[in-house]
Design a protein around this nucleic acid. Sequence first.
DNA 1: GAAGATTGACCAATCAATCTTT
DNA 2: AAAGATTGATTGGTCAATCTTC
Lengths: 163, 163
Amino acid sequence: MKLHVSVKFNAIAYIGETLAMSEVPSEAHVLAWTRLMKAGRLVLTAVEADLKAAGLPPLGWYDVLLELRRAQRPVRPVDIEASLLLAQHNVSRLLDRLVVAGLVERLPCDTDRRGQLIALSEDGSALLQRMWPVYRAAIQRHVGAKLSEADAQQAAAILDRLI
Amino acid sequence: MKLHVSVKFNAIAYIGETLAMSEVPSEAHVLAWTRLMKAGRLVLTAVEADLKAAGLPPLGWYDVLLELRRAQRPVRPVDIEASLLLAQHNVSRLLDRLVVAGLVERLPCDTDRRGQLIALSEDGSALLQRMWPVYRAAIQRHVGAKLSEADAQQAAAILDRLI
DNA sequence: GAAGATTGACCAATCAATCTTT
DNA sequence: AAAGATTGATTGGTCAATCTTC
């Protein structure tokens, strides 16, 4: 009788846990999440501080300029949104600032007259080149110096599964 | 002669690379950094969206409330800053909102009259409990479902080295 | 003078609505 | 109606300055 009850109870507990397993994260998953947020914020803050200390604009500017240089041709705002994971209105206003700073130009888009093309200017290209050494040094200081080569490879591989 | 030149060149190249190694990040380090930013932004956006969809406040509120409940007693703003990696003025205004929402209370601090103590209210405690199931499900959906247990453990360990 | 915290002014992000073209 | 993009209004974050207490 006692055994019977015990079996029943274990069965219920087991079912409960099985259901829970698919609905709630493990402790390791929660820890990975909190570390992701904390490490991300800490390193981002440090890198942004290095850029600012060198009198350079924020990372968001670099990201857009790099996107344009990589494409080697004018790019649609919608493509920038997709690759940088930014909201449409966010990109619109970021581009406003880059235009005012003379780093990019807005061109009409012939194939779709709703849209436009964003072109990298000479100044934009020059800024990109001035920023990279500082940015690169910041990455080295705040990431490179803290992770082994194997750590970096593993981290990149695992984080990629979240994307 | 040709060999001699070659040796010299290699030596110079090697020195150059050795110096560079300590100043610039490897490709893997740069990739780890970009993935960290991208994965962090993507998952954070998704989790925040889940909270909002459930009619709940943003994660920052949860972080503060959780900090207070963990301490089991009123906490100094300076301690919140340290554990959440937030700037002082940022915490000040976040607490303003929590006070207005009736989730925390500001109490005078007897041991240091410059400071204050932040106490969790009943409503704050209740909100914490209402948020956790939604938050937990979001972590499971956006992290747990995408990483194996081993991945999560490795990720947590590696990211911890950045903190 | 340094530390804990707040405040006013400014900049950036977000929401909802809008406009044009597809 | 849906997609690309912008805009006005509000909210949140940041900078510099300030205030009080240590």
